[in-house]
Design a protein around this nucleic acid. Structure first.
Lengths: 291, 291
DNA sequence: GATAGTGTATTGTTATCCGATACTTCTTAT
DNA sequence: ATAAGAAGTATCGGATAACAATACACTATC
């Protein structure tokens, strides 16, 4: 009875995303003459692998992608022929192939924010010696697109593209603070607010209050909301219209830090960084966030 | 006339891959009853962004994906509705969205080699302080799936998933050294051997000789074949069948190193690492490579 | 203000994708 | 061992969903 049933950070971060695999909306797109359903189904098969399973059999794909056996067969086969899935001839199970990384390279190269932010993130890291991340909003999640690990942490960079729900992360709330109220409301509506830890804030009022506070001071802090022992401070990057296009965060442990010290020692450097990045996007402090 | 027309390393690594975008094979798959053409075309649209262009208009997509205007329109639209492409309403051009990173996370989590190799790569890095990479073969290219930058190099990790042709890289030739001759021949046949630098080895005989040498000593070195000033040493990881499933390489500059010193100071540690990794895959030295 | 180029919307036709079914192979329990 | 069941594979006629042609709208450029 000690640990209640909190969802596992890693599993469910993508698990929440798996909601995207919903079948029912079926013919909501019927109206859309340009929508190609076959492509959607094929991508649903690829998405079946987001759950983190190392490999899937045909029946697993049926279940996870909500397709009947024939469809799963055809799409999995096609993806295999094209080289995005590999099939173990022994087990007859499918697994993602290295070729899948092609997509992420395409994205990395095309995102102008990543290109321009890089050096400034490194500078922030060198000033503070803490882990620094650049994140962007994907639906109701935050996705880490650049990751600089802490100086004396493990050298293996955390996975780029990993997602965490926006509502309970500093980055997420920082980004939401740079969006109009109706958009924030829509995102929170879509989020399923399950707690990761006993400190995860799931109360909508409290979340909105913290977003409002972030609008005033320019940054926000989350304490052990996703991972026990983790403190995070984050601030939004704003574009010329005063709208957030991403966030910068720093993470550290409760062993070495307190929120108070973070406000004093880290917040100024963080704010300096996002101010520069925002101004590079054309943001001028006058531009107000439409609320 | 000083610099001849070498292809640019970055552009053409993926450019070679763009060969996959070939249109003509049109109905070679006609035979394959399970092949869903619509999915292939949709993925061709995604692949159009591999060229590195930050954004593409509809006509660019037509050209790069070899689709007519209607098809490009339908597939780009579908990908936009699904959230994989974003459209700038001003310019009406499409760009990859952050959601594309989902695929790479799926791959990263599912690849068992990456999971198990991580700590050993870190150890190799700490012993040698050099940049260490884990790579896998994708068609005729090598794709870097784990990257540990050199101690005092730029902190921003190089992009994971980036590709370089196998024929002219140490990693590539190391991996090929763990494949049977007919497979090597097939891969070299498919490669278009354009030089990156004046030292790129494009002579088939010479390439085969170096692969043969790698089979004997267990590693191979490439000198400035992809990038001027870059030296690379690499060795293959073998599975239980004695077949290579990936490669480990270390890169350094001609300023600080010579091939001779690499053989003396780095090769032993590299060989130790790949020996461990191979044995974890079930490889036992007795198992010979079928030639 | 004319022209070429690019993007959007619509439509009838038919090729393609569908999904039910029968067949084969592998698993597992008795 | 053997049989029962599950999982995966192969086939095929038919209807639907993808197709490609075309006409329209926009916007740059000269």
């Amino acid at each position: 009875m000690g640990t209640a049933s909190y969802r596992i950070a890693r599993g469910t971060a993508q698990g929440g995303h798996a909601g995207q695999l919903r079948a029912p909306m079926h013919r909501a797109q019927r109206e859309d003459a340009l929508f190609v359903g076959s492509l959607e189904k094929g991508l649903r098969v690829l998405n079946a692998f987001l759950t983190g399973e190392p490999d899937l059999g045909l029946s697993d794909i049926c279940r996870l992608a909500s397709l009947d056996k024939s469809a799963a067969q055809r799409f999995a086969h096609t993806l295999m022929v094209l080289g995005y899935l590999e099939k173990d001839p022994r087990t007859r199970r499918y697994r993602p192939s290295t070729r899948m990384l092609d997509w992420s390279v395409a994205y990395m190269r095309s995102d102008p924010l990543i290109q321009v932010a890089g050096p400034h993130l490194v500078e922030l890291h060198e000033q503070t010696r803490q882990a620094v991340n650049l994140s962007r909003l994907v639906d109701t999640d935050v996705s880490y697109v650049v990751r600089i690990p802490a100086r004396r942490a493990r050298l293996l960079s955390p996975i780029v593209g990993e997602r965490v729900p926006a509502f309970c992360t500093a980055s997420g709330r920082a980004i939401l603070s740079g969006r109009p109220d109706d958009e924030v409301a829509a995102i929170l509506d879509r989020s399923d607010m399950l707690p990761f830890t006993e400190r995860t804030i799931c109360d909508r009022g409290e979340i909105l209050a913290r977003i409002a506070a972030a609008r005033r001071v320019g940054y926000t802090i989350a304490e052990e909301e996703c991972l026990p022992g983790e403190l995070t401070i984050a601030a939004p990057i704003l574009n010329a219209e005063g709208r957030s296009i991403g966030g910068v965060n720093m993470s550290m442990t409760t062993r070495d830090w307190t929120p108070k010290r973070m406000r004093i020692e880290l917040a100024p450097a963080l704010l300096r960084t996002v101010t520069i990045l925002s101004s590079l996007q054309g943001y001028r402090p006058s531009s107000a966030v439409p609320a």
